[in-house]
Amino acid sequence: MSLLRVTSPHASGQGQVSSVMRDVLIATLPGVLILTAYFGPGTLLNIVFGGLIAVATEYAITALRGRDPRVAISDLSILVTSTLLCIALPPYAPWWLIVIGVLTAVLLGKQVFGGLGYNPFNPAMVGYVVLLISFPVQMSAWASPRGLAEVPGLGDTLRHVFAPGTIDAVTAATPLDLLRQNTGLLFEDLLTNSPELTGWGGIGWFEVNLAFLRWRPLAVVSPDLYLACAHRYARCPRCLRAHRI
């Protein structure tokens, strides 16, 4: 028998990096579902396509850096990065936008600093910021939510993403734009009368409001959802009082 010398504690919990990352991925699910309900399969396509690019990049880079690529992939951190970034990108964004964003996130956001744990910034946000500065037009080209326009099917989605130009732009006024353009109506009237904020969209605000109350972190995941939350918040008289607005 030979003895082993190990430092305490000798027991350890079940926690793994991959399980932390898995939990984050699960936490994005409700947000992704709502995005899909609003905007159709565009977000899902973003996530799947971005994820493939990200995994391939991570694999190649870790192999180049002389690390074990399978270990690097299996901690799921790369999927968290790509998923967070792709949720934040507009649905139906052109394929090259996703590729540039993911490459920036993985290469400049993460791997140049030494990989997992050594990145000073959130890699997904590095990718997002670079895209926002470089491609403001594409980054603000959000599709109209269900209720304002027809949500494209899967075939249209693929064409739109990989062969841009075959479909004309499907952008429409965002609710914030609606407020800006409004000149005559009271805010309350606007909330009850304008088509953007009633009907399907109106129900949506209610759903998102629930998410805000129960799952605030995930509402923060997407700027659009966050905006929606703010809207609902503004409608609630108790909140208005609480904040002396």
């Binding site: 028998m1 030979s2 003895l3 082993l4 010398r5 190990v6 430092t7 305490s8 504690p9 000798h10 027991a11």
Partner: peptide, 17 residues
């Protein structure tokens, strides 16, 4: 084969050499 003998408990004890 290899064996750890821990003096104290699994959280704060140390391995005896």
């Amino acid at each position: 084969g290899q064996q750890r003998i821990i003096h104290g408990g699994p959280m704060m004890g140390f391995a005896v050499s």
